[in-house]
């Protein structure tokens, strides 16, 4: 998950045309990347689907399906934060999570 370029995680090696990518960055106070957060992907019913730890630069990525998803972010010394996101095959949904 490292090697991120400014403005988003590098998509080198990802076949975006076949995937519904949700990715982004977790920031504390809107500016500082959080490298030890956990981002959960919940489906439309609120059920857990996947979870990833953030990279050193605070980035995360999921390969979801079409539709609406919720990102729930857990981090030390912070309350959980939920962000709703819509994913579609062939596109990349970029989300900035602020804790």
């Amino acid at each position: 998950m490292c090697g991120a370029t400014e403005g988003g995680l590098s998509l080198d090696g990802v076949n975006v045309a076949k995937e519904a990518v949700i990715q982004g960055q977790v920031l504390r106070g809107g500016t500082d990347p959080v490298g030890n957060a956990y981002v959960r992907l919940l489906d439309r019913t609120g059920e857990f689907t996947a979870e990833v730890p953030t990279s050193a630069t605070g980035h995360f990525r999921f390969f979801a399906g079409e539709g609406e998803w919720t990102l729930r972010t857990l981090a030390p010394k912070a309350d959980p934060v939920d962000n709703v996101v819509v994913a579609a095959i062939g596109s990349v949904a970029e989300v900035t999570v602020t804790i």
Binding site: L41, A50, E51, F62, F63, G65
Partner: peptide, 16 residues
């Protein structure tokens, strides 16, 4: 996950 069970996803969503 429900989406994998149902056949809507083939792998956990943190994997291609």
């Amino acid at each position: 996950s429900p989406d994998e069970y149902a056949g809507r996803l083939l792998a956990p969503a943190h994997l291609p």
